[in-house]
Design a protein around this nucleic acid. Structure first.
Length: 732
RNA sequence: UCUCCGGUCGUCCAAUGGCAGGACACAGGACUUUGGCUCCUGGUAUCGGGGUUCGAAUCCCUGCCGGAGAACCA
């Protein structure tokens, strides 16, 4: 169990009655059934993705459960595409899904499509009609909703509920034959209109969709609903455990109802809590939005939680599987700390990555007592703890590059890297002491360090046994190869990007929490020759920096490109943080141009404007964000011409604001607590952020934001003012 | 307001009427030619109130909190 090597655990089938200690409640159920021979000792599961998106880390959890349970008990797991809704599905995703599952190290016993069973499912529908358990309903969508009632109101029977079996048979056959337009009729099951469980209030079985299906083409114009198709598909494959996520819990009674009434194979549905991760969004809709609107470069952008993205970032399948094991399986809604994922990948990569040296932000260092033209080929170990990784040659010469961050003119307490007069070890090479600092006379910037090397210390230790605590990585300038390094960080800057702040002046979306520093592209990095020569996809530890992999798309001879998978743990950063009393993580930090010699990062407060600018800039696809971008925010005087509350949204106020455009803008603001009667704002002047992309909201489109401020107790007040400023005037 | 599901360290998962344990995170220390790895140490939890019991995280009652539920989505 602790050894998640793909395929390694499939051969060993424990005897069904070997009462192993089940590791979670699902395996407990399976082991109970195995003991009682419930399915003749057979275990069959399935993984049922809908082909309308890429697989993400949440799917990985499901895959590990579905395939893992089958493997562990000598059973089988099928891959079955849940393709019952032709309008949202796309073949593009099918290949990607299969590649991702295989990458994780699983192989399906059979590959099916729910659409393979359309004919069978249709037969079951006829059976239910004959049994008087299904009827064709002519009510339209809205009427059905109306008749169905709600949590507090019982359902009312449709006037078509008592059609005879003959009439239903005739109508349903003609539905299939294409005699009726979309939406004109549906087939419904006759279950229980009084149930508190809405799923049982005569659920839909079939709807008419004259749509082309990616597999069945135009054969069908009626398509079964998930609730009907799923149990019957499971039955067709004689699935013993239909494992799914918690939101299907309320569907289980219906699942069982169909099995009973159709006399189908009784698969058992078991629900577990889906995976949530801090600093991550997992919904397909949101991931699709990030891709389609260009906030990321694609489904395989290394910042995406998709398996394709994680793979490109350098994650290993073993790390993902180890993570899935660590998080466990339960029914509690939970949010897993992304640090656990990061730990899993560090843990795996530490064992399996060769070490190499790369300098990300180079600073010249000259060894003054080293001969001008002498190159020393050092044999360096590729792994400090595992000799089987072997050694490589690393060239050393008079002029080197070290990391700019490894030198400080005025070191603070505890600093044991380089500073004026200090001695450090150059990894594998020897001990050097800094004797001189060369600065650019114009800017004062440090441009070069001059050092002397202790000739006795070749290799790294000195015969007198003195301790030198600092060890730096370096690259020989004459031999260095230039590389591009993409430093990836969390895509979102808040733990929960799904939750908007109720006090925010305008309702926020997850896009407002995008981390503007999620990608920092460094060019002109210096790497040792052996590193530039690795194949795309190769994973390496840059000593003292982090785990990186050569990009699978962009890394090529003549253009070295590496992605940071995850940084090394950095206990010095912790010390600095504590000393500085700074917050744990610089949030909303603005990234200086990557090529700039000094890092002129500016930190700004996490105000809405920041998020907006961050969005705009990310959208522009530039990794380089400057303070200038914030100057682009367009503030205008607005005159409130109408104001009112918003039906169904306690915190929102709808404002109609004249900003001198001939047509007033619609603006929603979460300021209701401060303005129980929003009409007091009519006639007031406010400050509007005018150059925002209109935001689609549940209640309408918001075409701007109003500047506001306030205390938690009082709620947010809109900044208003009187005077002669005209609507549309620029505010500076 | 109704129904269902859930509530254990900061986070995730165990303990299935009998010593509340592990991992991550955090804090301290040892070691170190990566401020990495490894090792040692530490703190921190049973949602509240009643009840049953020799004994309750576990069973019962009740309150509170969180999630899900009224798509011709899955």
């Amino acid at each position: 169990m602790s050894d998640p090597i793909p395929g390694n655990d499939t051969a060993a089938t424990p005897p069904p009655d070997a009462a192993g200690k089940a590791s979670d409640f699902i395996r407990e159920i399976v082991e109970d059934d195995l003991r009682t021979r419930r399915n003749d000792g057979r275990v069959a599961t399935r993984f049922p993705p809908e082909p309308n998106g890429y697989l993400h880390i949440g799917h990985a959890k499901a895959i590990c459960i579905d395939f893992g349970v089958a493997d562990q008990y000598g059973g089988t797991c099928n891959l079955r595409y849940d393709d019952t809704n032709p309008v949202v599905e796309d073949v593009e995703y099918v290949d990607a899904i299969e590649a991702d599952i295989r990458w994780l190290g699983f192989e399906w016993a059979n590959l099916y499509y729910a659409s393979d069973y359309f004919e069978k499912i249709y037969e079951f529908a006829l059976l239910l009609i004959r049994k008087g358990l299904a009827y064709v309903d002519d009510l339209n969508e809205e009427q059905i909703r109306e008749y169905r009632g709600n949590f507090y109101k019982k359902g009312v029977e449709s006037p078509y509920r008592d059609r005879s079996a003959e009439e239903n048979l005739d109508l349903f056959t003609r539905m299939r034959a294409g005699e009726f337009p979309d939406g004109s009729k549906v087939l419904r099951a006759k279950v229980d209109l009084n149930s508190q469980n809405m799923n049982l209030r005569d659920p839909l079985l079939y709807r008419i969709k004259h749509a082309h299906h990616h597999r069945t083409g135009d054969t069908w114009c009626i398509y079964p609903m998930y609730d009907f198709a799923h149990p019957l598909s499971d039955a067709a494959e004689r699935i013993t455990y239909s494992i799914c996520t918690l939101e299907f819990e309320a569907h289980r009674p219906l699942y069982d109802w169909f099995i009973e009434k159709c006399d189908a194979f009784p698969s058992r549905q078991i629900e577990f809590a889906r995976l949530n991760l801090t600093y991550t969004v997992m919904s397909k809709r949101k991931l699709l939005q990030l891709v389609q609107q260009g906030y990321v470069s694609g489904w395989d952008d290394p910042r995406m939680p998709t398996l394709a993205g994680m793979r490109r970032r350098g994650y290993t399948a073993e790390a993902v599987r180890a993570f899935c094991e660590r998080i466990g399986v339960a029914k509690n809604d939970s949010v897993v700390d992304v640090a656990l994922l990061e730990h899993a990948v560090r843990d795996d990569l530490n064992r399996r990555s060769p070490r190499m040296m790369a300098v990300l932000k180079p600073l010249r260092l000259v060894i003054q007592n080293w001969p001008e033209d002498e190159t020393w080929e050092i044999d360096a170990a590729n792994h400090p703890d595992d000799p089987s990784f072997g050694t490589r040659k690393v060239p050393f010469s008079k002029v080197l590059y070290i990391e700019r961050d490894d030198f400080k003119e005025e070191p603070q307490k505890g600093w044991f890297r380089l500073s004026t007069g200090a001695e450090v070890r150059l990894r594998y090479a020897g001990l050097v002491r800094c004797t001189e600092v060369v600065k650019d006379p114009a800017t004062g910037e440090v441009v070069e360090l001059r050092c002397t090397m202790d000739p006795e210390s070749r290799g790294g230790t000195s015969p007198d046994g003195r301790t030198v605590r600092g060890t730096l990585h370096w690259v020989s300038a004459a031999h260095a190869v230039d590389a591009e390094v993409r430093q990836y960080d969390r895509l979102f800057s808040v733990e929960n990007p799904n939750a908007s702040d109720p006090n925010a002046p305008v309702q926020q979306t997850f896009l407002d929490f995008l981390n503007p520093a999620s990608l920092e592209v460094l060019s002109g990095c210096k790497v040792e020759p052996a590193l530039a020569a690795v194949a795309p996809g190769t994973r390496v530890q840059f000593e003292r920096v982090g785990y990186f992999c050569a990009d699978s798309k962009d890394h090529a001879p003549g253009h070295a490109a590496f992605n940071r998978t995850v940084g090394l743990k950095d206990s010095w950063a912790k010390v600095e943080r504590k000393a500085g009393g700074e917050p744990p993580k610089a949030k909303g930090a603005v990234v200086a141009p990557a090529t700039a010699p000094a890092q002129a990062a500016t930190t700004v407060a996490a105000a809405p404007a920041t998020a907006v600018a961050a969005r705009a800039v990310l959208k522009a696809l530039s990794p380089e964000i400057t303070i200038d971008d914030f100057a682009k925010i367009d503030l205008r005087v607005g005159l409130v011409v109408d104001a009112g509350s918003v039906e169904g949204a306690k915190k929102l106020v709808r404002l109609s604001v004249d900003v001198g455009e001939g047509r007033p803008r619609n603006v929603f603001a979460g300021i209701r607590s401060a303005y129980p009667d929003p009409t007091v704002l009519v006639g007031r002047r406010v400050i509007v952020v005018a150059n925002l992309k209109p935001r689609e909201m549940k209640f309408g489109t918001s075409e701007g934001m109003c500047l506001a401020a306030g205390e938690p107790e009082t709620g947010l007040f809109v900044a208003t003012f009187d005077g002669e400023a005209r609507p549309g005037d620029k505010v500076t």
